[in-house]
Amino acid sequence: MEEGIFALRCGKCGWMTATYAVACASCGTGGLERVRLKGDGRVLSFTILNVPTEEFAQDAPYAYAVIDMNEGCSTSGWMPSVRSAGDIEVGDSVRFSGRRGRASIFVKS
């Protein structure tokens, strides 16, 4: 998989998503462009997983965060270095630091 973190942007109204889409959810325009994100953002919300899925069986506890990226879209990320609720708060600055498989790894910045 290509290194980096990406989003899709509507050329007409600027709406962005970091998931899969072929049309803008804001103005309905088709043909979104793929843009590379710088990787910096803030925690919108988070949780600490103690009971993981099979793929993360060896990794718990760790944080999962929904992150507001500076470019104006939200993404989500795996934060393996955050292991308890005391280590993270809504609003914390975080940055993208690489991948493991499909997971986007984020660290506090």
Partner: peptide, 26 residues
């Protein structure tokens, strides 16, 4: 969930509702 974009980042079903709970509490 959205397995490609959510579960692939380590979140479980309880984890998604937990994220909503943190947002609500905050």
């Amino acid at each position: 969930s959205d397995y490609t974009y959510e579960a692939s980042n380590g979140v479980t079903f309880p984890g998604l509702y937990a994220s909503m709970a943190v947002a609500h509490m905050n």
